[in-house]
């Protein structure tokens, strides 16, 4: 039966190759362009964005977004080193995508309606959720915002964060005093000078601050409450749905690999004796994952061998193996209390 199906699939591919290019099996025009060029053009940064896009001591890019680009490059071209990172500023990223300077934007970019519609973009599955969080002095011994009763919270004046914190603390009925500061640096020094019990900011930024600019990181606690959350996703040009599929399944494969314990180290071992049908399909032992995207059957296996699964990428750049020690929190798998999930690989 299996053999029969394989033959059928082969025939279908053949038929498609004979037919007009438009109807060729789900081969994305962008992927075709990337293959012809031999390199994948990804977005970098004009400098560095902690944890997501950085440059190491050997003048090479690293970071969560860079690793995702390298994973995508491996999926399409089979070699992570074929990723070409184009430095872009924040303002430049969308025009650069439209003009074809980059193939995809993976650059801590939030999914908003304006970008999705007016700017003519398409977004992938969110791969990161970052939102407003609170950091408090460790000696208070608290781990949730509800324990801030009667305390002082510092925020940056005039930002959305100010409103979010006020709304949240009102909702959970915590009496507090809010002190706002004009500049981020003032805010930081006010907090460090014990002017306030806690202060609010974008989660990853708080973690970076705690890891880098505070002398004793252990004496500060990022509270568990997630006050707001912004979905971070890859952005692509409108009009190439097949490329969106490729990017989505690249992310899905990384999450599935994590869920099933497939890592950079054991991927070949697991591929030799897949523990269940999903893993067999994921690693291309049972065909389908490649052909349906117009890629190689082993793309996911090669990708995991090159960059590791999602947990490995996260831990290396933001999590426990990085200087930032950012908890997974929302950015964990659904099965571990997070909101990341992969579509079903059938």
């Amino acid at each position: 039966m299996k053999q029969h199906l394989k033959k059928m699939a082969g025939l279908a591919v053949l038929a498609c190759m004979v037919a007009t290019p438009q109807s060729a099996a789900a081969k994305s025009a962008t992927v075709q362009k990337i293959e012809d060029r031999g390199t994948m053009l990804c977005s970098g940064h004009n400098g560095s964005y902690f944890g997501f896009v950085e440059v190491n001591d050997k003048n090479e890019w690293k970071g969560l977004d860079i690793d995702l680009c390298r994973a995508l490059t491996t999926a399409i071209l089979g070699d992570p080193d074929k990723a070409q990172i184009v430095p872009l500023s924040w303002a430049q990223r969308f025009p650069a995508l439209q003009s074809g300077d980059v193939d995809v934007i993976i650059k801590a970019t939030g999914w908003t309606m304006g970008r999705d519609t007016e700017l003519g973009l398409q977004f992938s599955l969110p791969y990161f959720f970052g939102g407003t969080q609170l950091m408090a002095h460790g000696e208070l011994g608290i781990s949730d915002a509800k324990d801030l009763e009667g305390g002082t919270v510092c925020v940056e004046a005039g930002t959305t964060i100010e409103r979010i914190v006020a709304d949240y603390l009102k909702t959970i009925n915590v009496q507090h005093e809010m002190v706002s500061y004009e500049k981020a640096a003032e805010l930081r020094s006010a907090y460090l000078a014990n002017r306030c019990d806690a202060f609010a900011g974008w989660g990853p930024n708080l973690a970076v601050l705690r890891a880098t600019e505070i002398e004793n990181p252990e004496s500060h606690k990022i509270l568990n409450d997630q006050l707001s959350s912004e979905p971070i996703a890859a952005a692509m040009r409108q009009g190439d749905e097949d490329f969106v599929d490729v990017v989505n399944w690249m992310l899905a494969a990384l999450l599935l690999a994590e869920e099933h314990g497939v890592t950079k180290a054991n991927v070949e071992e697991v591929a030799a004796t897949p523990p269940n049908p999903t893993v067999a399909r994921l690693l291309g032992v049972t065909p389908g994952i490649g052909e349906r995207l117009g890629l190689r059957e082993t793309w996911a296996r090669e990708m995991i061998a090159a960059t590791g699964n999602f947990a490995e990428i996260y831990d290396r750049n933001l999590g426990k193996d990085s200087p930032y020690k950012l908890d997974r929190g929302l950015n964990n798998l659904w099965s571990h209390g997070g909101v990341l999930y992969a579509p079903i690989l059938d």
Partner: peptide, 17 residues
């Protein structure tokens, strides 16, 4: 405009944990 001049690379130089 995303050119990596001396100031941008200085920014990248301290832009890691």
């Amino acid at each position: 405009i995303g050119l990596f001049d001396v100031l941008a690379s200085a920014n990248a130089a301290f832009g890691t944990g």
